[in-house]
């Protein structure tokens, strides 16, 4: 009897197409695609929740300012400090402003802003929506005839998409200010000369590609963290997992998007 039941167990067909983890990954990607589709359908339909978009933009933008200010300024100082020895070996310290400006505007500002926002805002949205989900606050919103997807998800995704580019521009300015402080202290370069040298090598495509990257990063942070939070299961443990996965997944995608956008914009460079 025991042997027979064992044989029946062994003959059971495989339950996974590839493997448990890969199947789960593809199913997750499919539902993320559906979630994005739902976002694009909802974003153009009324009600537009302008008040909530402003509130969320404040939470994403203004509340991230202290961290962005500190990180931007220090990044500028440190990058300039670390680059000087290499340039001075070739007697090319006069190139420092343009090297720093290119590095900050083309790469550092969008990437660092994206990563900081993913950590700070992504985890916040993931945890907030996750705890709302497990304590039935999202259901409560639904039964009070408010579309929670529009009120919670669409507003947050729009807020991150609008605010990350602004934060990126702010960070680039702060990083350039940090770089100027260091250059001025060492080479006694004037502010006008620093700006002239720095922006000599910057063109429209540099700024456009950084703004485009930041828009894409902001959208990614918003949609991933909302998706994770909105689909939280398994109580408080699930809330922690939603916050964590929001950050990890958003950061992972930010790096991939960085490579893709850099490749594409490089085709348009003269």
């Amino acid at each position: 009897m025991h042997d027979a039941s064992m044989k029946v167990k062994q003959k059971q067909p495989r339950r996974y197409v590839i493997s448990q983890k890969l199947d789960a990954f593809f199913i997750d990607m499919y539902s993320l695609g559906q979630f994005m589709g739902r976002f694009f359908r909802a974003v153009f339909l009324p009600p537009y929740e302008f008040k909530e978009i402003i509130k969320q933009s404040y939470a994403v933008g203004v509340k991230s300012l202290p961290l962005i200010t500190l990180t931007g300024f220090i990044t500028g100082i440190v990058f300039t400090k670390q680059s000087r020895p290499s340039l001075s070996e070739f007697g090319a310290t006069s190139w420092l402003p343009s090297l720093v400006a290119i590095a900050i505007i083309r790469a550092l500002a969008p990437l660092v802003t994206g990563l900081i926002t993913a950590g700070k805002v992504g985890s916040n949205i993931g945890a907030e929506l996750g705890s709302m989900k497990v304590t039935e606050q999202i259901d409560a919103m639904e039964v009070s005839a408010t579309n929670p997807f529009k009120f919670l998800v669409v507003t947050r995704v729009l807020a991150t998409t609008f605010m990350v580019p602004l934060l990126m521009l702010y960070m680039a300015l702060l990083a350039l200010a940090g770089a100027f402080v260091n250059v001025h202290a060492n080479e006694q370069t004037s502010f006008v000369s620093f700006i002239e040298n720095g922006f000599h090598s910057i063109n429209f495509i540099d700024i456009f590609s950084s703004v485009l990257k930041s828009i894409v990063f902001g959208f990614t942070i918003g949609i991933i963290s909302c998706y994770q939070g909105y689909n939280t299961t398994q109580g408080t443990q699930g809330v922690g997992r939603a916050a964590n996965t929001s950050v990890v997944m958003a950061m992972f995608l930010i790096f991939i998007e960085e490579i893709v956008i850099v490749q594409i914009t490089n085709w348009f460079r003269p």
Binding site: M132, T135, E136, A140, M141, T146
Partner: peptide, 25 residues
Amino acid sequence: FSFQNSALYDSMTVRENLEFPLLRN
């Protein structure tokens, strides 16, 4: 619908919780 755990919105005061369905509908 009265939920088992009340489902009050944590980010709003009692006044805002009660106002929420009214202001929207």
